[in-house]
Every structure is written in structure tokens, then in C-alpha cells.
Design a protein around this nucleic acid. Sequence first.
DNA 1: ATGAAAGCGCTAACAG
DNA 2: CTGTTAGCGCTTTCAT
Lengths: 340, 340
Amino acid sequence: MSKRLTIRDIANMAEVSPTVVSFVINGKDGVNRHTRERVLEVIKKTGFTPNISSRRLTMKKSFNIGIAFTPEVSPFSNLFFFEVAQGVLDKSKDYGYNIVFTGMEKVNNKYHLPDIVEKGDTDGIVFLMTVDKAVLDALAERNIPAVLVDYHGPTLSVPCVKVNYERAAYVATRHLIEQGHRDIAFLSQNGVPNFYNQVFTGFRKALEASDIMIPLHWICSANDEAQTISALNSIIAGKKPPTAIFCSIDNLAIEAMAYLKTKGFRVPEDISFIGIDDIIMSQYMDPPLSSVRIDKWEMGVQAMELIMRIMEGEKPDDVTICSDNLILRRSVTAPPTQNR
Amino acid sequence: MSKRLTIRDIANMAEVSPTVVSFVINGKDGVNRHTRERVLEVIKKTGFTPNISSRRLTMKKSFNIGIAFTPEVSPFSNLFFFEVAQGVLDKSKDYGYNIVFTGMEKVNNKYHLPDIVEKGDTDGIVFLMTVDKAVLDALAERNIPAVLVDYHGPTLSVPCVKVNYERAAYVATRHLIEQGHRDIAFLSQNGVPNFYNQVFTGFRKALEASDIMIPLHWICSANDEAQTISALNSIIAGKKPPTAIFCSIDNLAIEAMAYLKTKGFRVPEDISFIGIDDIIMSQYMDPPLSSVRIDKWEMGVQAMELIMRIMEGEKPDDVTICSDNLILRRSVTAPPTQNR
DNA sequence: ATGAAAGCGCTAACAG
DNA sequence: CTGTTAGCGCTTTCAT
């Protein structure tokens, strides 16, 4: 186990001072071309890499970016944020940062500052979906940049990577209509009011654009499996069930599809389904689920880029990801021809 | 943005020297009880946390643990290692380490040393499934601990967290037999010879234990979707197709099930399926897939624990995870009663 | 264009 | 039991 080289060793070998070596490593000018090349030569030959702990201390930078999340949106249990995380991870490499994942614990109904920032071990944080105002303030005070991915709340002091869910819902619903459906039910979570509003608005506008009216008990919300089932039961209760169901996220569509199949519905022959997100699982369903694809990986990339721009002193605007990329699979077909 | 406190500030406030503060922070003894309490008091009051960059430099430790993976087993695209990573991450908290994810690029058909170790920015690495001998050697030379998760190759110099795939395959196959099946096909990947051997052995032993013989064209391997399909075609080609298919991993079972359904087979009425792993997706299939559950989260936890033990100078043995936890779902039922 | 020297905040001998 | 001091390996004034 040979001792690691230091900048001083390199300096000796190249017969210059440590300062010069530091300069060339950091690409600063003010170094004679020949000297620079000589140093570069030695560095290449020795495979020298500057000790990162030391740079961290000197530069008061951690070269870490955190991804902070609450249990519900852990990239390790939520397939949406799983892809987002991948995006920020991939992009982080380009900037020479480590990504460190930190779950946020809730104590007394408010989130703790991620321990990674308490330790001063992060230069920026990307929050997934939610964050406490207090946490954001603490970050601002420490002057560490933050961005939010897939945030649904009121405008905030930090830039966000957003999805236009109204648009997505509109596109999904319009697709159903274009396939000939006029009896379309709406199923969404409503735990996050803003999300619900966006999605419902998109749905409503699509229907209105085609002068379609639906019975009110076809508009349902559900935040867990039990609620989904009872919503579904109410939707199919009438004598004339809908021919299609719009679901605000794929997860819900998957749950709903499974349940209605147990109730004897054939998908899509009896009833069509469409969702939003296009999570990895959707393509494996039976039938594979049509969905409005959200490029989650790209959201992660954008988040990382926002962080970097903030670090460079910019004050970037929110970015909104393409929200109308319809993925056609087999869960949607024309409505059954009715004879009554 | 108030300046961060240093150990020196705390020392002044508590009217002791920085050394004493350092001692109490690091839980060393040789500090008077009252002094210790006084210092603790100040620390609590101020919310002081020692600058980690500084400790890193002084102690020559990074307080980072890496998870290294090739593209095929990226936790962000492979649902098996996705759960493993979660386990490592959860456990790392207990030890105060960051987890940093590093993909390994292949250049000239061999993997590069993860950049995180080149930079000296990791105290240990968890490799997912594969690793080059050369990389392991480089690590050994730098004296940084490594463990392997779900490794299938010949014995190595580093401890591994293993699955007993022979046992898992045995349990899965026996379940099929217990349900009355005697016409059972075998489908496995064979990209990793050791894995194939284990799984096949388990399958074979279960059959032999019940004196079951099967036609040889029911023993198939496939490493991508096209191969899966052609394997399946060959399996169902004869006049009397099997009543059940054992698949070496859930992914394969999912693919196979989907394909055979398009061929008009009803699952499980016409043909039963069982897999190994119990990945997150399996429960959402139609029908939900029976599987031998591998506790992937626990594998991650064990990996982290192995790393820690190596750091403490131990020379731990491999650990093998429970491999016979049968999860009964709806993809297996009794074989159709035959009348011919 | 180059070098000397200070200092980042901590830990760990070593003295007392 | 407590304090002094010397680094850890780098970056960055400030001279030259």
C-alpha cells in the first residue's frame, strides 16, 4: 500500500513550487506554457489526483450534492423518483460531484434539516416533491442552493422542475375522446390539492372541448387501495358504467385495472384505461398501460443543472418538462359498440 | 448567514482547550466528568457539529462508502439491486457514513477503478454482482475494504453476501410438485454459469426426489427477450406442453407469462408459473406471481455490516441470506386434469 | 511567472 | 485531567 502522492511530491518532481502545481490543476493562468506542460507530464505519469478531503477543507466546499426525500417519495420505494434520482446521479458526474441520498425524518410533524447539511457536507440539495419552509429557510441562511423536483405547491423562493399536469391530463383525456369515448370517469389522488386541481382542470377542459358531460359520481379520488376500490365500486355502480377511466397516475391505473379485472371487466374491450407518468412497470401490465410519459430522468438532469446554475450566481427560473408525450399501448381501444 | 462555529469557539465558551472538546466529541475518556458535562452543555446549546471536511483530512477517512455497479446491475434500472441499495443506505445511517453511488464504465473490456477510489474518497466499497479481479487488487493495495453482493463466481478474497439459489430453485420446484405438477419446464438465464448451475441443480434435485422425468426440450435458457420467446416456443411445441414453468428469476417469469398469454394460454389454469426473487413488480402482475422471496434489503444491510466489520480488523466469512421463503400468489395452481 | 507562507478546522502526540 | 503544538494536503494572498 504505497503512500499517496501529494501536490508537494509532484512539485518536487517537476521542479516547481506547490503553488504552480495547484495552478495547473485548477486551470488557472499565469503559468508559463512550458512549466505547465512539464507539470502536466508528471501528473499524467504518476496518475496523481489531489486529495479531495484537503480541497474540501481549503475551499470550504464538500463536492457533494444531496437528494433529500420523505419516506413516501423515497427513490427506493417510489418508481417515479427512482428515475429522477438516476437523472441527477448521471448528471452529477459531469460536474464532479458526489450524490448523497438522505431521507428526511419527520419529528413532531415537521421535517428535520437533513443531517448532511447539519454536518456542512453538501453544496446543494435537490428535494423530491416536498420540503418544509423552515428547512428551506435554514438552507438559505447557510447560503446553500436548493431545488425542488415535482413540487405542486404555491410559488417558492427556490427554482423547481415541474410537470404540467394539466396539460398531461388534457392530452390523456383527449386521446380517450379521440378513440370515441364519451363516457369517461376520472380517478385521482387528492392528497396534494394543487396536483388534483391541475389534473382535474386538464380533464375537464378536454371534456368541455368536446361538449361531453359525465355523471358526477364518475369523478372520484382515492389515496390508498381501499379508497381506490370503493371509488371504483361507485364508478361502476350505475346501470351504464363508463367505457374509459382516466387515472391521474399510472400507479392508480394499475391498481384500478387489476381490481376491475377481478370484477369481470375486460380491459380494454369493456373498459379502457390511461394514466400519467409512464413508470417502468406500466409496460409490463396486462394489457400494457397507455400513459402520458413524463421524462423523469430528464427531470433529474434539469434539477442538477439548476443547482449548478445557482452556484454560479444565477437566479434561474422554474423549468417545466414536456408533458404531452402520449405513449400508446394496449389499455385503450374504441368503446364497445352499445345497443340499447 | 452566520459563520459556522469551530471547535475552538466551543472550547472558549466552555473555558477549556480544543483538545478537550475534541475528546468529548469523540467519546474518549480521560476527561473529568464535570468538564465533559460543561462541554456537552455548550455543544447542545449551540447545536455545534464538527466540520466534517476537517475531520476527513485529519483522520484520513472519507466517511463515504461506495456502491459500485456495472450498467446491467445499476440499482436504478435493476429492481433487484434497487432494493439492495436501499438496505445499504438505511444501514449506513447507523454508522454515520454517506453512501455514494458510482457506476463503473467498461473500457477495453475491463472495468475502471471507480473514480471515487481514485480520488481517495471512499472508505469501503460494496460491489453489486460483479467486479474485476484487477479492481479488487487495486483496492487491496490501497487497503480499502470491499464486499460483493450476489456474486456467483469462484471464491474470492473478499467476503460476499450470497443467495443459495440452489435451495431457492429447489423450494420453488418442490412447490410446483406439491401442487400436483409433474410436467414442469425449466427456464433460466445462463449468462452467469455459476448461477445457472446452482439453479439447475436445485430444480433437478426436486424433480429427482419425486422421480419425475421431463423431456429435454423443456430445459431452456434465454438471456434476452428474443431468446425467451424462442425458448418458450420450443417448450410448447410438443403435443403435450408442460403444466408449469419454473423460471430462475421473476423477470423471466414475467416475460414468459406475458408471452404465453398472447399465445392463448391461461395462467394459472392452463399453465403455472413460479420465479425467484420476488421483485417489487411481481405482485402487480396478472396473475400475481408466486416466487421464492429473496430479502434484498437484508442483503444490503448485511453488506454494510460486513464492510464495517472489515474496517474493525475482522476477517468475516461470507453470509448467505435465507433462500426458501416461498411467497404464494396466484400464478400457481393444480395442473389441469388431463383426459387423453 | 514563480515561490513562501499562512491558514482551512480538526485530531493526536506530547508535556505538564 | 488538561493544554500546547504540530501537522493533514491543499488553495491563496502577497512578495519577488
